[in-house]
């Protein structure tokens, strides 16, 4: 059984009368790439800030690498790398000097870890450039360089691809996948670029109004989002038999006595309907169903606008 990296139980964070995170129960296992999906103000950043110790929970508990309690959590956080909101660095120091500051602070003995981290994120040629002259994309990359400086087991990334150009986004994705595949780094990432999340995530958590409304694996989400041809007929079992016989279809799902879903033959629905009618089956409706991640999320939260 895989190690549980993070676990929260009934985690709540209130700011006065406003509840930012409500009764949050999440579990992340080693090697997960967990995508946190939610609109603005849904509580994503607050949850990530609680994990990183930047804001204390109002109630509930959490465990990091099996540790709980203030002191133990503090120690466990040394195995975390994070980017929370925009990366913050000292503007008058260069990229190298900024990372060197954190290398000294964290007591990392390996002196070349700074060069390695900069190389990893593609900033090795601008290491001596001052942070204040960095573009937003370069700042994000430096943020990631800091996050991986201590060779973390768990990466917490809040909207990490904001400000990156398409090439940067692809590189960023490749870096995350490389870390996940080579070092089995667990990644918790929030983003509103849902298409991007869908390319890396192994699990999804949909959050709305501070609550985790659904938690799915990538396979489960794929199943829910897959495009199918939905048929409403007078006899679904007979219709399935006809389609298997005529088109050698294997991916037929009978939902009830009158409804079935086809994952094949989507490109030529007219032939499917014709074959059924010719076999004496009444077809009352035939239509495509399914959604992409974005539509699925919008349906889930009841049509509210995405961040």
């Amino acid at each position: 059984m895989k190690e549980i990296v993070f676990q929260s139980r009934s985690l709540v964070r209130r700011f006065g009368a406003f509840t930012a995170v409500d009764d949050m129960n999440v579990e992340l296992k080693k090697g997960d790439i967990f995508a946190l999906v939610g609109q603005n103000g849904a509580g994503k950043t607050t949850l990530l800030k609680m994990i990183c110790g930047l804001t204390p929970p109002t109630s509930g508990s959490m465990e990091l690498f099996g540790y709980s309690g203030t002191k133990e959590l503090g120690r466990a956080r040394r195995r975390i790398g994070s980017i929370i909101e925009t990366p913050g660095f000292y503007p008058y120091l260069s990229a190298c000097q900024n990372l060197e500051y954190y290398r000294i602070q964290r007591g990392i003995g390996k002196k070349n870890c700074v060069e390695e981290a900069l190389h990893f994120v593609g900033l090795d040629t601008v290491g001596n450039k001052k942070f204040k002259s960095f573009s937003l994309g370069m700042k994000q990359r430096l943020g990631l360089a800091l996050a991986i400086l201590n060779d973390p087991d768990f990466l917490v990334l809040d909207e990490p691809i904001n400000g990156l150009d398409p090439v940067g986004i692809r590189e960023f994705r490749e870096i995350l996948l490389k870390l996940n595949h080579e070092k089995e780094t667990t990644i918790l990432v929030s983003s509103h670029i849902l298409g991007e999340l869908s390319q890396i995530a192994t699990r999804y958590g949909f959050i709305s109004g501070g609550r985790l409304v659904e938690c799915l694996t990538a396979e489960e989400l794929e199943m829910k989002c897959r495009v199918t041809l939905k048929l409403e007929v007078d006899n679904s079992a007979k219709a399935a038999a006809v389609l298997t016989d005529r088109f050698s279809m294997k991916q037929i799902e009978i939902l009830d006595e009158t409804t079935l879903l086809l994952s094949e033959g989507l490109d030529r629905p007219e032939f499917v309907v014709k074959a059924l009618v010719e076999s004496g089956i009444l077809v009352s409706q035939a239509y495509r169903t399914g959604a992409n991640l974005e539509n699925y999320f919008i349906d889930l939260i009841g049509g509210k606008q995405i961040a």
Binding site: L54, R75, R77, R78, G88, F89
Partner: peptide, 9 residues
């Protein structure tokens, strides 16, 4: 920059 320090525990 404080968040970089605090989040490290």
């Amino acid at each position: 920059t404080l968040k970089n320090t605090i989040s490290y525990g």
